[in-house]
Amino acid sequence: MEFKLDFGYLVEIIPELLSFIPLTLFLAVISMIFAIIGGLILALIIRSNIPVLKQLATIYISFFRAIPTLVQLFLIYYGLPQIFPAFTAMTAITAAIVGLSLKQAAFLAEIFRAALNSVDKGQVEACLSVGMTRAQAFRRIVLPQATRNAIPATSNVFIGLIKETSLAFTLGVVELFAQGKILAASSLKFFETYLALALLYWFLIIIFTLIQQTLEKRMEKPYIS
């Protein structure tokens, strides 16, 4: 059987797929916001050396870095309601956001910890020496410098997250990938449909990479001699 690429079909379905990009971005951005908050809290706990809390944070990071995202999503969406009936009311979208946030928080915690550690100790000493508090030093001096250090690795996490939102389809969320599957099943044009999907994800990542580069350039400004 000879295969002929139906280019017309590929172009034709793109507008329909495009309409699902907002949902994909919604899943990624909301999960990223929660993951950043969670990751920062975990990183601060680990740096603070508070007993018990620190051990708990370490176990958290170890656990969520280890289990596959798919296992985790199923555990939350299908598993938890069996123990806690209250979770039955949880929508698939919520479950996907919870799962992705929990996981990426663990990865971001490690990135943030390293970024915070890489800020020279002398910066805090200088703050204290002119009468600032530790909290002021953190907010005004340490955090901005650590942010710059963390941006490249954090961007990689976000790129990973955009792609992992496609796993939400396994919970029944009709997002970009799920819609692609539906189209492919009805037209039987698997190659064209999935190629269109691949191109769309690629396009998303290219746009984000451009944003990232602009951001990095702006944050680098003070450090260029």
């Binding site: 020279d120 002398g122 910066q123 000493e125 200088a126 703050c127 020496s129 002119v130 009468g131 001096i141 901005p144 410098q145 710059r148 003070p222 450090y223």
Partner: peptide, 12 residues
């Protein structure tokens, strides 16, 4: 207030 050996100026 202190003046440091390595200046320790706020880099940002």
């Amino acid at each position: 207030a202190m003046v440091f050996q390595n200046y320790n100026l706020f880099k940002n």
